[in-house]
Amino acid sequence: MQIFVKTLTGKTITLEVEPSDTIENVKAKIQDKEGIPPDQQRLIFNGKQLEDGRTLSDYNIQKDSTLHLVLR
């Protein structure tokens, strides 16, 4: 499925993911596309910070959902 990740600069990254993917996996995909190390990434969905060990389906993230990427 496709999800979107919006950065603070207003750029939107499109990712191909599975609901069973962990947040860690998603961060690795963002690193592949953008070169941002996962330990600098914080992903936010519906105002909640997403934890590495959880999956997209844990957070009820579905296709065409938009996550927000904050760098630390």
Rank of each mutant, 00 (worst) to 15 (best):
Q31T: 10
R72I: 13
I44D: 12
Q49P: 12
I44Y: 11
T66G: 10
G10L: 10
E16I: 12
N60G: 08
K29F: 11
F4D: 14
T12R: 03
I30H: 00
S65F: 13
T55M: 09
T55D: 09
L50E: 00
I61P: 01
V26D: 00
E18T: 04
E51Q: 06
K29P: 00
E18M: 11
E16V: 13
D21A: 13
N60S: 06
G35I: 04
L8G: 09
Q40I: 09
I30V: 12
T22L: 13
P38H: 15
E24T: 15
K33W: 10
V26Y: 00
L56H: 00
I44A: 12
L50I: 05
I3H: 00
N60K: 06
G47I: 04
G10W: 02
I13Q: 03
K27G: 01
K11D: 14
D39F: 12
I61L: 02
E34Y: 03
R54Y: 15
G47K: 09
P19L: 10
D21H: 05
S20N: 14
Q40D: 08
L15H: 01
P38K: 15
K6N: 13
D64F: 09
I44W: 15
K48V: 03
N46Q: 14
Q40M: 04
I23A: 06
F45S: 07
P37A: 15
D64E: 08
K63Q: 12
Y59H: 11
K63N: 13
F4N: 14
Q2K: 05
Q49F: 06
L67S: 01
V70M: 04
E18L: 08
K29W: 06
A28D: 04
L8I: 04
I13H: 08
Q40K: 11
I30A: 03
P38E: 05
I23L: 07
I3A: 01
I36Q: 10
Q62F: 06
N25Q: 03
P37F: 13
Q40E: 15
L43Q: 00
K29L: 09
P37I: 15
F45P: 00
F4G: 04
D39V: 15
R72Q: 09
I30S: 03
Q49W: 02
F4P: 02
V17Y: 14
E16R: 08
Q49T: 05
E24G: 07
F45H: 10
D39L: 07
L69N: 01
S57G: 07
V17D: 01
E34V: 10
Q62T: 07
K48H: 13
P19E: 08
K6W: 05
L50H: 00
V17F: 05
P37H: 10
T9D: 11
K33L: 05
S57L: 08
F45T: 08
M1S: 03
D58A: 05
E34W: 04
I44P: 00
L50Q: 01
V70A: 06
E24H: 02
N60M: 13
T9I: 14
L71I: 06
L67E: 01
T14W: 13
L71E: 08
V17R: 01
L56K: 00
G53F: 10
V5Y: 03
T9K: 10
G47W: 09
I30K: 00
L67A: 01
G10P: 09
D52S: 05
D52Q: 12
S65M: 09
T12E: 04
V5T: 02
K6E: 09
G35M: 08
K11N: 10
Y59S: 04
Q40S: 06
D64Y: 04
F45Q: 06
Y59V: 04
K48R: 09
R42T: 06
K27Q: 10
G47Y: 04
Q62Y: 10
Y59N: 06
